[in-house]
Simulated scan of single mutants.
Amino acid sequence: MSLLALLPPLGLGLVMGVVIGGFGGGGGVLTVPALVYLLGQSAQAATTGSLIIVGIAAAAGGLGRIRGHGVDWRTGIGLGVAGIPTAYLGSLLNHRVSQTVLLLAFAGLTLVAATAMLLNSRGEPAAVEPVETPSAGPARSVGDTVTACRARLLRSGSLQSVAKVAGVGAGVGFLTGFLGVGGGFLIIPALVIVLRMPMATAVGTSLLVITLNSVSSMLSRAGALDVDWRVIAPFTIAAVLGTVVGKRIADRLSGEVLTRAFAVLLLAVGLGVGVQSLLSL
């Protein structure tokens, strides 16, 4: 492969790596369209190649954030584990639909995630109202009553959190397998909006989930890999280097700016892929 032929995958990989390192996701949103429209791959081949590129880049970016902004390991591992079986199902479905259906689904979900992020960025999460505790009965002291109420609230909150993590993880896992993306463009909105996680922590946690989802989805495709390593290898190397640049840029920006920038990126890509797919019908 000539040096000139290496330039497109290297340049695109660098851009994708900056996005993953800076936003904690969204690399697959750029990688799949880039592989299809700019490098001439089929949607199925692009989704497989994207899993390799995004998974390795996310792992590299996650290592760089463990000591920085931190990672919510419990939530991240929970999301990843919940997504393993559904990622397998998504990968099976990937080979049963047409390229146009794949790309239209990709565009639609991207636009929905972008809209949700923009709406959420308009205001801070509402403060949690204090819960009034019932007055103590004759057989129980005030201290016992307060303790019991706190225990019930903690149990209820834990169950709700587990249910949210399981639901989000299963959904993201399926879409990772189906669309061939790490799921960051869905994980970030889910962590910020559904689980109310600060953007800085959501970025590191998202990278962990992307890595786990990419590995599980790749394992489900192991028997039918369609990978052009002449394109994927330089793309991946450049993406890993780009994550370092992206992290340094993100460290200088506020969570609000990162959230809105990520949403605008999703809107642009979603509109572009959607229009291109509709024109090809």
Rank of each mutant, 00 (worst) to 15 (best):
W229H: 03
Y37R: 01
T236E: 08
I237V: 15
G70W: 08
V215T: 11
G17L: 05
G68T: 11
A113D: 05
V203G: 06
R221A: 09
I188F: 12
F235R: 09
I84V: 15
G246I: 03
L103E: 12
L241T: 09
A170E: 08
G255C: 04
L265H: 06
L93W: 11
N120G: 09
A87T: 03
G17I: 01
T47Y: 04
I237Y: 02
A113M: 06
Q99A: 15
Q160C: 07
L281N: 00
F174C: 09
G137I: 01
V215C: 13
G26F: 01
R96A: 14
W73I: 13
E256I: 05
S135G: 13
L7M: 15
V168S: 09
L119S: 13
I77T: 08
I232Q: 08
P85V: 07
V112C: 00
L279I: 02
R122L: 15
G61S: 09
G182V: 01
W229T: 01
A87M: 00
I66D: 05
L154V: 12
L186T: 03
A233W: 07
G173I: 04
R152H: 12
G182S: 06
A224L: 04
L7K: 01
V231T: 14
S135L: 14
A58L: 06
G108C: 11
L51Y: 12
V245I: 15
N213T: 09
M1N: 10
S91F: 00
V209Q: 06
S121I: 02
V146E: 10
I77V: 15
L7F: 14
G70F: 11
G24W: 07
N94S: 13
I77M: 11
G26H: 05
R96T: 05
G182Q: 06
L278V: 13
L278G: 06
V29A: 14
I193D: 06
P134Q: 07
A268H: 04
L89F: 15
A148H: 09
V112T: 04
G171S: 13
G26I: 02
V19L: 12
A107M: 09
M218E: 05
A151K: 12
T211G: 10
L212Q: 00
M197L: 10
D226Q: 13
S214R: 05
G83W: 02
G90P: 09
V162L: 15
G108A: 12
G123E: 10
L104W: 07
G157T: 13
P130K: 08
V203M: 09
T100P: 00
